[in-house]
Design a protein around this nucleic acid. Structure first.
Lengths: 242, 242
DNA sequence: GTCTATACGGTGATAGAC
DNA sequence: GTCTATCACCGTATAGAC
């Protein structure tokens, strides 16, 4: 990294060199922060939120304890930043999946609910950490706020998609269509429940089982689109295209 | 309490008096333990699992810190007992509801899923505490074990009811019946999701909304019994019989 | 930026009087 | 059984050298 900056200095343009060097330093700083956040997630996974200490995080990151304080100031701040990271990653995943889905409403709905089951998001570690924060959310307003903002964004997007799907189902002649807000609530609740199930899974609830359940849920809500759901949630979202 | 024992002594039957006195002592002991467990739940609710201390629990219970140690030995043990209490209460509620439901399979299914939404179980405090333990479950095998045992019992009972409901739906001529294991998983996941939703509810997800969602879920799974679900989950389980 | 050493406060648990 | 007093430990955060 610093070597790049040094090479850039060879250009003779002092300003450019300084810029690159600054970028490099910023990149290093961001890298170290990410490294510490990763270590924090690992520690919370291993020891829980209560027994996560600055010393453990520092050890896992392979640096001294002082470094953690230097970059995050306080333990609380470190945890908050870790949660923010998870939240941001979550948002990016569902927006990415949504973008990949194109314009078709049913595809977009599949993409949205399928996003919650993307492998990046449902590793044991991350599910553990999410629920650790859930558990303390009532005691830490900041946690609650971050989680709430995440849910809010997601809910708004999902509600729109559900409304579109309901309209499409009616147009396709389906009788007894569940109201859009209920559809959205049912899907969100199912998603949350699946996360918890995968976390606690004694009965080995894995990604494939969760996908099958989600697919079935969509099918009972919108029988007319059964084939669509199956196609999207097993081929595109499946582990392999076969 | 001690007064009762003293009165009993007046009977002249030494053995009886001793028995009653012992019972009274045991009752006192149990009462004190329960008092401390309640205080623990309150503390976890207010401060989270991490910042719950023996001192806080003692203060909330209005006793000295030494009492807590005397009755539970260690902080870990206190927390475990608190979780056990919740778990036991949970089991008793769904078994009670099941008993009230009689023999009809559909009623029993309604009772089972409705049990999770009984007011006793879904107070803010208890939901908070449950999820606090969920979050730390991966780090504390004991927590995981207790939660797992609870889920296991519930799952076994629910699976049987779902199988019965599926059979009934087929007998009633419903087309495309969801397999019983999936029905059970979907219902469990929905329940868990609703608990989380009620805990996090920015969008005020209350008991009535949750009941409506549960009712709707059963209806899309078993359209032939729609009227049954609505009757059971809004009249019997509702806040008032009207 | 990174480290070590340390001050400070709080927590879990013990001891012993009542 | 319940209390108070106390200890030993550990985690956070600070200070300052490099």
């Amino acid at each position: 990294m610093t070597r790049i900056a040094a090479t850039a200095e060879g250009d003779g343009t002092g300003i450019t060199a300084e810029r690159i060097e600054r970028r490099s330093r910023l990149a290093n700083k961001a890298l170290r922060r990410q490294q510490l956040i990763d270590a924090t997630l690992e520690s919370v996974h291993q020891s829980g939120l209560a027994d996560t200490t600055l010393a453990k995080v520092a050890t896992l990151a392979g640096v001294s304890q002082g470094i953690v304080v230097f970059h995050f100031g306080t333990k609380d701040q470190l945890l908050v930043e870790a949660l923010r990271f998870l939240s941001e990653e979550y948002r990016q995943v569902w927006q990415r999946e949504l973008a990949k889905a194109g314009e078709d409403p049913i595809n977009r709905l599949c993409a949205m609910v399928g996003a919650d089951l993307q492998p990046d998001l449902i590793s044991r570690k991350k599910l553990t950490v999410w629920h650790a924060f859930y558990g303390e959310a009532k005691a830490h307003p900041t946690y609650l706020e971050i989680c709430g903002a995440r849910d809010e964004e997601y809910a708004v997007a999902l509600n729109a998609l559900c409304a579109a799907a309901v309209a499409a189902a009616k147009a396709a002649g389906q009788a007894d269509v569940t109201p859009a807000p209920m559809v959205a609530d049912l899907l969100v609740s199912l998603t949350d429940g699946l996360w918890l199930g995968m976390l606690m899974s004694k009965w080995e609830l894995g990604r494939n089982e969760a996908l099958a359940l989600m697919c079935r849920q969509l099918t009972v809500l919108f029988p007319v689109f059964a084939a669509r759901f199956e196609a999207y949630l097993t081929v595109e979202q499946g582990s392999r295209k076969r």
